[in-house]
Design a protein around this nucleic acid. Sequence first.
DNA 1: AACAGGGGCAACCGCTTGCCG
DNA 2: TCGGCAAGCGGTTGCCCCTGT
Length: 372
Amino acid sequence: MGHHCCSKQKVKRGLWSPEEDEKLVKYITAHGHSCWSAVPKHAGLQRCGKSCRLRWINYLRPDLKRGTFSEQEERTIIDVHRILGNRWAQIAKHLPGRTDNEVKNFWNSCIKKKLIAQGLDPKTHNLLPASRTLLHANGPNPSNPAQFHSNGAIAKGGATTPFTISSPTKAAYDTVTAPPPPEMAPALYDVPNPAGMLMGHDQAAAAAIPGYPYPDNGGGVLMSFRDQNAGIQTSMDFMNGSSSSSSMDHAGGMPNVNGFSQAMGTAFMDVTAGMWTTAVNSVMCAGIEVARQQQPPLPQQELVQGEVIGRPTVMNGRGAAADKVMDMMDVSSVYGGAGATAFDLELMESCGLFCGGGGGACNAMEQLQWDC
DNA sequence: AACAGGGGCAACCGCTTGCCG
DNA sequence: TCGGCAAGCGGTTGCCCCTGT
């Protein structure tokens, strides 16, 4: 079956010969391609216009960059793919001289395998189930104060609880439009501390980041937590980062009810730190502001899933993009009992892996604009 | 040296989108 | 508003080449 545009024509298919390439280049160079369907006729080619267009775009354009992908390009592809998925044309826009077809092929033949080898799902960029099992093989530790649930007892198996981290805007939206799924069990917080780490906070580093919106307080990270089951909403303000380890103010008051206490917040930070490790400084210190009070709320229509997907784009929090950060960071974390998954790893992975393992290698994401 | 299998890549297919009359 | 056409785009196919046996 030929193309629609050439179904009645006798056209050649398959690989292009050098002679055909030359004819096409010569014609496009001289006349441009105002109408692709007319190109083959005028260029003297037995091809359909669609085929000519593809050949020109993918191989004959003078501005194309050929050869193997650089490490930076590879990182860019991974970073942007995390946000956009298989939108190859959009991804290719962030790689000058590369085509969507080239990016797609490179992904399928190379990057995909690398991610799988690293235990990551190439579709979601999250840990594959097998890797999760490994991460949580230790199970709950009764001596760990971070493990508790609503009545203060050590969590027992079987139940899960949705736990949303959100901005006030998103929380309000949740309240109105997104009630907790009925199958969710009562509150049960089971938060292991696999890394035994506390969130670090480098004030000087944060202040040195171009575009960082809070140079004076050294690290504005205000997270709003909402327990979907209990309807409790509170926030944590990681502003006072002067000490070498985590220092949290609980702006708005962290209620010591329903298991949602300071220990809960600490546990969250501990796990978060464990997951984010080196990426966390650049991410957190760059001013991820989940609940940025002074920013006008998003229009309601922006609070749909399709829009949300792109939000973590600015998790590196650098430059102008930081101003668009995190009006909403919705993470349906699930706390599992029975020593299984306690904190939703997908959030941690989505955030932490974003900066290519830290080290400030975020150039690709600095370029990623919201017009994707 | 010959063959099989797999990987990489160029090209195609068909659906979607946008433009224009 | 609708229909036709062209372009854009992502998924898939198939060929070529490389590597291992």
